[in-house]
Amino acid sequence: MKNSKKIIIVEDDPDINNLIAYNLRKASFNVEQVFDGLSAEQKLSNEYFDIVILDIMLPGIDGFDICRNLKENPFNGRNFIIMISAKSSQKDQLYAHILGADAYLTKPFSVAALMDIVKEVNQMQSQDFVVTHK
């Protein structure tokens, strides 16, 4: 079956970016890859993605800022934001949550866990995100 959800991967490490992209594409998702904060901002302000997989430590604009901007000025609807970061402290996770991130995975994360979240989101309607993840 062809999955209709559009996913963007914002991750500066090319290997990790490619890794996620490979797995998502294998699950038949429509995947877009960006490698820095600025390109991510541009892309996200012009196009709607159902799921945003977002690294925090990015060159240019960091993941927290992208998350905040996206929640404040969403382009044509709410995005489901999955943060992936080497930052593992409670403080960072809470901060991400306050900014509106819907899920938080700490590196090194399990690809299976990421895929589970993506697949779950795929089952839902966009507006249900809030209900499920709050």
């Binding site: 490490d13 290997d15 990790i16 890794l19 996620i20 080497a86 590196k107 090194p108 994360f109 399990s110 690809v111």
Partner: peptide
């Protein structure tokens, strides 16, 4: 970061 790649 490298560990993530290796594990992934």
């Amino acid at each position: 970061t490298p560990l993530t790649s290796i594990k992934g």
